[in-house]
Write a protein that binds this DNA or RNA. Structure first.
Lengths: 260, 260
DNA sequence: CAAGAACGAGAGCACTGCTCTTGAAACGGA
DNA sequence: TCCGTTTCAAGAGCAGTGCTCTCGTTCTTG
């Protein structure tokens, strides 16, 4: 009835003559952008399909042509966030490596980049590393992007290992440096964990001793413990020098995986 | 007509008004119990005031006599959860100490107790250590219970320090053990963090060197990084031997704060 | 060019948190 | 014992939500 003059309501970003598929893609990203905006403004719990549609000048039911439901919209945002974080981490490593930084310095700049992204996008961080939504189970499509950022740190360790600059936990140091004192001896993880670590190195196709990979998994989780405490307010009125604490902990973790 | 009768009632209100007050208390805990049930069943996001009221055989509006709103109910659940976790940690320490365990063994059994509570009450864990609800800001009333569990680990470190069994980060070990090799030298945190740590020891009135307290803050956060990764599914299809990884990481963290 | 898929609009369902009003209890001073 | 005050459960109602269904229209494709 009245729909003819309404063609331009979508900010006429989609011209009538444009291919349907392209319009679909543009509208899809427009929806995600608006959803991300609301996410940053109010948090995931207050993300409303109707509000997104309203802001986009369309009716709520029309949104279901693009996303089967609210949870699917969230899933899309989650994978996007994983990808954004992974991209940031990769860029940081690339920049640091191009600068000729040491492996430890690369580790630290990747950690810093991750933290900066998290501080800049707290709600997206909460989306991927906070409590999962009600009955939501992350589909397998998210595991790939989720591993991207972790893979960056793993790559640093693998590079260090290839360069012979990695101390492997569980081995009494004897070869390279001065063995008199001060070089910490890190005990290796139990064999069950080492088994998981071995499978992980195979799956990721990376050349890294299992004890290192095991420490890496723990370090990765611990890193996000620090971030979550900071972002979720657990350090409020407790730790003020959060940048310094994070940096300090980051090099401690690097030492834990045998780096430097 | 102003406040004449109020003077008397305010004085001994808990004694005189017995039945009403007690009924109120019972209904309040009944509401919280039912809310906790729904929390465990469906998650915080699906916690519905109306459903709680329905299950309790009352009308939704009646619930507002006991809690000003949904968020206040959540707040009550949060403080309860903090208290439960704190109680579990304290009980674990007490049992371990009574058993004559070493400081490191006490640390480990407290860590295990925390993890077991978290695994048994994942939704309550998510409530206190997951992403915060929309615009919700934890009131100051939660900081006390929140610190309880952390204080248990701090106490262990303080006891070890009093017994002279604590290695302080930043100091080159020389006194007790064989100094030839293997005793790790942990660098101290930057001074800004040490300053925060010093204030923290004063506020908590505990005798602990600032470097240790700084490592303690980091270790506390990192511990929950491991827990969150496990509970929020980040270790799914990555690490299967999660018990062993946690135990291994727990003693690593203990070493980080100078314990054993 | 016409069949059919994709689409936007709208009405509607069941549900939510929350407010306001009403009438009935319980309470405590007289 | 009586009566005003306070507390409470109930109900109606408002605005908002996710989601489904139907209805014409529009674009695409055989």
């Amino acid at each position: 009835m009245v729909s003819a003059p309404k063609a331009g309501t979508l900010k006429n970003m989609t011209k009538i003559r444009g291919a349907r598929e392209r319009a679909r893609g543009e509208i899809t990203t427009a929806i995600k952008d608006e959803a991300r905006r609301q996410l940053a403004a109010e948090g995931a719990a207050k993300l409303s399909l109707r509000a997104v549609a309203r802001e986009l000048g369309m009716v709520s039911s029309a949104l279901y042509r693009y996303f089967p439901g609210r949870d699917d919209l969230l899933t899309a945002l989650i994978t996007d966030s994983y990808d954004a974080l992974g991209g940031v981490a990769e860029a940081a490593l690339e920049a640091s490596a191009a600068q000729g930084d040491s492996h430890l310095a690369r580790w630290q700049s990747v950690c810093r980049a991750v933290r900066e992204w998290a501080l800049a996008h707290p709600h997206e961080y909460a989306l991927i590393y906070g409590s999962p939504v009600p009955g939501y189970a992350a589909p397998d499509s998210t595991t790939g992007p989720a591993a991207r950022a972790a893979l960056v740190l793993i790559t640093i360790a693998a590079d260090a290992h290839a360069a012979g600059a990695l101390r492997v936990p569980g081995t009494a140091e004897a070869a390279t440096g001065p063995a008199h004192a001060g070089t910490p001896h890190v005990p290796a993880a139990p064999t069950s964990v080492l088994q998981d670590a071995r499978e992980l190195t195979e799956r990721l196709d990376v050349d890294l001793p299992a004890p290192v990979m095991a420490e890496m998994a723990a370090a990765w989780a611990q890193l996000f413990g620090l971030l979550s405490f900071e972002l979720f307010g657990q350090f409020e009125r407790v730790i003020e020098a959060r940048d310094d604490l994070f940096d300090h902990a980051a090099v401690s973790l690097a030492r834990g995986v045998g780096l430097a």
